[in-house]
Design a protein around this nucleic acid. Structure first.
Length: 451
RNA sequence: GGCCCUAUCGUCUAAUGGUUAGGACAUCGGCUUUUCAAGCCGGCAAUCCGGGUUCGAUUCCCGGUAGGGUCACCA
């Protein structure tokens, strides 16, 4: 890694509060953050809320809290464009005075006027950190509108003034900002602002390769949070969309990303968002969680009623936790486990039909009874009730009779499910007493059918 | 449609003017103590097409095609 530290880096995060924190905005924020941190720079945060109709306080809050949750901290105070109309007015007046802008009738019959930029109609060439040289003939842009009135500035004007006033050195934004760049450069030249260095990031694409939109399910960070994705996993996954390290490492802490990220190695083409890979990464992070953290998170996702049941059986719950950990890739899956009845049987004797307890096409009740009785005997003899010891006690017998013939019924008696953890682990978790109780229950069931 | 951008397995990607084109996710198969999960091992799978430059191109150039972005008194 021989990237040189760039001095006086100032980047910015300019979301407009017209929607929830978007996954694309987040990725842009992340790349800005990584670039800024590795150069010891500052990342400014400003809300582009010049559109008062669409800007909402709830979105503002959502974006700020989302970034905080992800750990993407910005420097300094939040700046709001809606609070700086005098500033823009000053620039507008100057531009008009200098002949770079003019007031114009909006339409033939309009009594309303707008302020247009006087387009010099020239070719703009700019260097992009990820794309190289980009050329643009601004003629086709015409005299575009930069403000509805002196006190009502529009996006392009506000962006340029703000970046200039706050001495932004690097503009790192999505590829959809490329076509805005020539306009903004034109305005920069008109107000005598220095041109920042641009880097346009490839877009995150929906599976059909189009820009991520509402058509694609989850696009707000909130939704991922609600589904039980961890912030580290989201960050990690997003970092790998459009960038890759020099080696084949896949799991990174934020610190490692800051160290290894290289904006010059950002790709040019868009990347399809792949939930499967996110799931995998999330699971990797779940594996890394401490038991205590994992427990808190599971409890957070479980319904209250079930949570209460668990609290009364804390020791049992602690034993189930590793089983849950192995089976989920995001915390929402805990709810699925619960709904599918994969949690209940730890806490209460499961109900099931006796026929289901037979291994494959066996069907001899007497034989089953004998085997269960023998199994009970063996399990009763276990002193140290661990999965390993339980297995030892019953292994020879099971091998002799056919493992499925013995182990399936035991497992079924304990879980009442076609699918579950293995019988030894189940026994250990339930404890010797409960295990024997559930096996005895089978005997009772057999006896009652015989009558 | 104009302008701009892009093009390696299904997806994220690595690499190089000469490689068996590598990895990860997904998928398929096997193993691991009966089912499941996890784990381990293995398989399938890609350089968009056509020219040119070159001894040699996936890599460089041009064209085509395809995909995407953008064309507001939104940001």
């Amino acid at each position: 890694m021989n990237k040189e530290i760039i001095n006086n880096v100032i980047t910015r995060l300019p979301p407009s509060p017209t929607g929830l924190l978007h996954i694309g905005t987040t990725r842009t924020a992340l790349f800005n953050y990584l670039f800024t941190k590795q150069n010891n720079g500052k990342m400014l945060f400003r809300l582009e809320d010049t559109d008062r109709e669409r800007s909402k306080e709830e979105f503002e809050k959502n974006i700020i809290e989302g970034l905080k949750w992800l750990g993407l901290d910005y420097d300094g105070e939040i700046s709001r464009q809606s609070e700086k109309t005098e500033l823009y007015e000053k620039y507008l007046e100057k531009m008009i005075k200098d002949g770079f802008a003019y007031e114009a009738e909006e339409n033939k019959d309009g009594d309303k006027k707008v302020i247009r930029f006087k387009n010099p109609n020239k070719e703009i060439i700019f260097q992009d950190l990820v794309r190289g040289e980009i050329k643009f003939d601004t003629t086709e842009l015409g005299d575009f509108v930069i403000a509805k009135s002196l006190s009502d500035p529009l996006y392009h004007l506000a962006v340029v003034v703000d970046d200039f006033e706050s001495e932004v050195s690097h503009v790192i934004r999505g590829e959809d900002g490329i076509s805005n760049t020539p306009r903004q450069i034109l305005i920069q030249e008109a107000i005598g602002a220095k041109r920042p260095i641009y880097a346009h990031l490839p877009l995150i694409l929906a599976p059909d390769k189009s820009k991520m939109s509402k058509r694609f399910g989850a696009i707000s960070i909130d939704e991922y949070k609600e589904k039980g994705y961890l912030q580290e996993a989201i960050i990690n996954y997003l970092a790998l969309l459009g960038w890759s390290p020099e080696d084949e490492q896949e799991i990174f802490s934020l610190e490692e990303l800051i160290e290894k990220f290289d904006i010059k190695k950002v790709h040019k083409s868009g990347a399809v968002f792949n939930i499967e890979k996110l799931n995998w990464i999330n699971k990797e992070y779940i594996k890394l969680m401490t038991e205590a953290d994992f427990k808190i998170k599971v409890l957070e996702f479980l319904p209250k009623e079930f949570g209460n049941k668990i609290k009364e059986n804390d020791k049992l719950f602690n034993k189930i936790l590793p089983i849950i950990k192995e089976r989920i890739e995001k915390f929402e899956d805990v709810i699925i486990m619960l709904e599918e009845g994969d949690l209940d049987y730890y806490f209460e004797q499961p109900e099931y039909e006796l026929e289901k307890i037979f291994w494959k096409d066996e069907n001899d009740l007497n034989l089953l009874k004998t085997r269960i009785e023998k199994s009970i005997q063996l399990i009763e003899s276990v002193k140290e009730f661990s999965a390993e010891k339980i297995k030892e006690s019953i292994w020879d017998y099971a091998s002799e009779k056919g493992r499925g013939s013995i182990l399936w019924p035991i497992r079924y008696a304990l879980s009442g499910k076609d699918k579950s953890p293995d019988p030894f682990l189940l026994s250990e978790v339930l404890g010797q007493e409960e295990t024997i109780k559930r096996l005895t229950y089978v005997i009772e069931k057999i006896n009652s059918t015989k009558k």
